[in-house]
């Protein structure tokens, strides 16, 4: 006896409406592949290029009541971004980080669409000019890539360095935004 799509959708909607879910997630197709997106009642908390261990990671970070359920606002803003219709995001975020990573990501959020910045400058603006390497690690662990635009951070010589989604994705995002960078 299989649960049909309608019954399944009604349950998921009721669970969210009753506030019984710690974290819900959705999968959004994009030009750079499927994006796994997750939100708590406070806001968007994860975007991931990987689906390995995805529900377990959410459970560890936000609680065991993990449920797939449509995240329409997130989907819409990402679609608009990939269509070139949106240059910044208006989504509330749920970031659970220490002081320095939080400061770095706040500064990161200020890097404008279509521009790049370096690890060192970002470190300086977050108050630790010598922490370029630590900033690299924070970029690598960015819980909400694309919305927090770590793809706009490049090496001191303008070269693309690492990216959680792979360098090819970083290049495509920068090209989409019309950014100038060293290939």
């Amino acid at each position: 006896m299989n649960v049909n799509a309608d019954l399944d959708a009604r349950f998921r909607a009721a669970a969210v409406a009753e506030g019984l879910v710690d974290v819900r997630y959705d999968v959004v197709a994009s030009p750079v592949g499927d994006l796994h997106v997750a939100a708590t009642w406070r806001g968007l908390c994860r975007i991931s290029y990987q689906e390995d261990d995805w529900e377990e990671q959410l459970a560890r970070g936000f609680g065991a009541r993990v449920l797939r359920s449509p995240l329409d606002d997130v989907r819409r803003e990402l679609d608009e971004y990939f269509d070139g219709q949106r240059r910044s995001f208006d989504l509330p975020l749920d970031l659970r980080l220490g002081d320095f990573p939080a400061a770095v990501l706040r500064e990161l959020a200020q890097v404008p669409y279509g521009q790049t910045d370096t690890y060192g400058k970002l470190a300086a603006r977050a108050g630790k000019p010598k922490a370029a390497r630590a900033v690299g690690t924070i970029m690598n662990r960015n819980p909400i890539p694309i919305v927090l635009p770590c793809h706009r951070i490049v090496g001191a010589n303008g070269a693309l360095t690492g990216y959680a989604g792979g360098l090819e994705v970083k290049r495509r995002l920068l090209e989409l935004e019309g950014a100038v960078f060293t290939a």
Binding site: L58, A59, R60, G61, A64, L67, R96
Partner: peptide
């Protein structure tokens, strides 16, 4: 901060 490892599987 960190939460304890959940003792049950993710609800999904």
């Amino acid at each position: 901060g960190t939460m304890a490892t959940p003792q049950v599987p993710p609800f999904e």
